[in-house]
Write a protein that binds this DNA or RNA. Structure first.
Lengths: 127, 127
DNA sequence: ACAAATCTACGAATTTTTTCGTGAAATTTA
DNA sequence: TAAATTTCACGAAAAAATTCGTAGATTTGT
């Protein structure tokens, strides 16, 4: 009896979403090729995952042609927000500040990006 | 034959780490009670998880007394950095800026915290 | 000291996630 | 148009993560 408040996409599902956010609608073939850049994955494995994701309403399939195409059902923003929100609660006790700190230390961020982030914060402060 | 570059703690494992980061070393009982605040979990379930985590070297156990106590093997910082780094690659194509944006929009952040974050960025910029 | 309560060890069941083989249908190529 | 290729459907195996029951050891309370 395990229940998640919000049914999070699994690891593999997030990888597929990442690929389709960058370029969709797209085919199983394309997704599988991208997957293989990071991790060897059989074609039918990717196909099956995408079929399951379609059942779960994570993807929308266009099967009007023989070669089906898929696209994410929810926006990149919405899903990312959900994923980050979940991590926030689970690992950072809800402290966005902590999460931001870790994000900035996890990866070198260019000065230009740092400036962008500051500007974004300025904007938030005005509201 | 699935291999993760860095063996990430699972969902349940992160929950346990979160509890122990806040207060450790501590007992199975305490961890289990905390777990139950969010999700009903049997005592032996928590015990088993913590035993497995000890085998995996995620936790360190003190079994010098009858009631064992556990503490995280790695620092909160190190593990969080790893988790965030993984999410960064998987979901944000390595863009910390994007992740920060999502973190800030996922949860309302207090003005004081926003200022803190800006100060931190200023510090990073100087280096 | 005895009974009740608490705790750990252990194995196994269950659930979830991931992987893939096979066969049939459609398409492409020779 | 026949053979080779590509694609999808389906079921099931394999792997990973989670859950829990039972038994035996230790401690606590009476």
């Amino acid at each position: 009896m395990t229940r998640q408040k919000t049914q999070q996409p699994t690891d593999r599902e997030l990888q597929i979403l990442r690929i389709l956010w960058d370029d969709s609608p797209n085919t199983v073939r394309h997704v599988n090729e991208q997957m293989n850049k990071r991790q060897k994955t059989g074609y039918t494995t990717t196909l099956k995952l995408m079929q399951i994701m379609t059942e779960k309403r994570l993807l929308i399939r266009d099967d009007s042609k023989f070669q089906h195409t898929y696209k994410p059902a929810k926006s990149e923003e919405k899903t990312q927000k959900q994923v980050v929100g979940d991590l926030l609660e689970k690992v950072f006790s809800g402290s966005a500040e902590k999460l931001v700190m870790r994000a900035l230390s996890a990866k070198k961020v260019s000065p230009a990006e740092l400036t962008k982030i500051k500007k974004m914060i300025d904007k938030m402060e005005k509201k």
